[in-house]
Computed example of a mutant assay.
Amino acid sequence: MSSAPLAALCPTYPIRTKRLLLRPLGVGDVDALYAYRSRADVCRYVPFEPMTRELIEERLETQWANSDLTDEGQALTLGLEVAETGALIGDVILFWHSRIHAGGEIGYVLHPEAGGHGYATEAAQAVLRLGFEDLGLHRIIARLDERNTASAAVARRLGMRQEARLVHNEFFKGEWSTELDFAMLSTEWAAAAR
């Protein structure tokens, strides 16, 4: 990958994978988002509490309204829709952290009923492609709570390298948590894509 300046990311939607359509979230997604983002078990290891319908509606109008990444400090959140059924089963996010360091981060949240089918891995792989091939990022990380073994398994299936285990580094939701940091470089992405 080159060290050329990063370009804005303006994807054509939906982004198709083998079984999913990744697309911007909209007002029609409130019920589906509420079905998993309101659950304590889903929110246990992620940096948000169970969400109300009102908060989801607010996010749809603000943070989740962006369908492009035009500069550092922004995030792109896309819904995971099962192509065969049209069901929204989760969402994935790409953060653009730094223009000068060409750094980003991914995250993913899935309805538990959709777990165990490889959907999170499939969606996250598509977002890594966006980050590396379309936006031109040099490095993408994933940070997660060590107890979130399903999320760690996704990062490993993606080919991300575990770089750190930060013991009790953050007081998170009333207790000390140990963070696992995974990463992938654009050169590693390109080598795996061959």
Rank of each mutant, 00 (worst) to 15 (best):
L9I: 01
L158R: 00
G118C: 09
Y13V: 04
E122Y: 04
L76V: 05
D68Y: 03
E122T: 09
S186T: 01
L137V: 05
G174M: 02
R16V: 03
R53D: 11
A102R: 08
A192Y: 07
S98C: 06
E188C: 08
H97S: 11
W189N: 02
G79D: 03
Q162S: 13
G115T: 04
A150L: 15
G107F: 08
A153P: 13
R44W: 06
T52D: 01
E72R: 02
A142C: 15
R16G: 11
A126C: 10
W176F: 05
T85N: 06
T17F: 15
D134Q: 12
L166M: 13
E170Q: 12
V92D: 07
T12A: 15
L128A: 02
R129A: 15
Q162F: 04
P50S: 12
A87E: 11
E54Y: 00
Y36C: 02
G107H: 11
G26S: 10
R156A: 15
R156K: 15
D91Y: 08
G103D: 14
L166N: 03
G107W: 12
T187C: 04
D68H: 08
L135N: 09
N66H: 12
L94R: 05
D41I: 08
R129L: 13
I56E: 01
L185P: 05
V42T: 12
P50F: 07
E84K: 05
R129I: 11
V92C: 05
R129M: 13
Y45N: 07
I93P: 06
F171V: 06
S3L: 10
T12P: 03
I89W: 02
L60H: 01
W176H: 06
F182T: 03
R143L: 14
A155G: 06
R44G: 03
R161Q: 14
A155E: 03
T62N: 10
R156E: 13
F95L: 13
A75G: 12
L6G: 02
G131N: 01
G116S: 11
F171G: 10
L60C: 00
L185H: 00
H101I: 11
A102P: 01
G104F: 06
V154K: 02
A75W: 13
L20Y: 12
L110G: 11
P5S: 12
P14A: 10
V42H: 03
W189Y: 09
G86C: 06
R129G: 14
R147E: 10
T149N: 05
D41N: 06
V127C: 03
E170W: 12
F48E: 14
G103P: 08
A155W: 04
H117Q: 15
R157Y: 09
D91V: 04
L6W: 01
M184W: 09
H168S: 10
R194S: 10
G136Q: 01
D71R: 10
T187I: 03
A7E: 13
Y36F: 08
L60S: 04
R139W: 13
A152V: 06
T149I: 14
G86F: 04
H101M: 15
A8D: 00
Y45G: 04
L94P: 00
V82E: 14
T12N: 14
G174P: 08
L55H: 05
F171N: 00
R156G: 11
L185G: 09
Y45L: 06
R37I: 10
G104Y: 00
E170F: 11
L22M: 07
A7W: 08
Q125P: 13
A102V: 00
L137M: 03
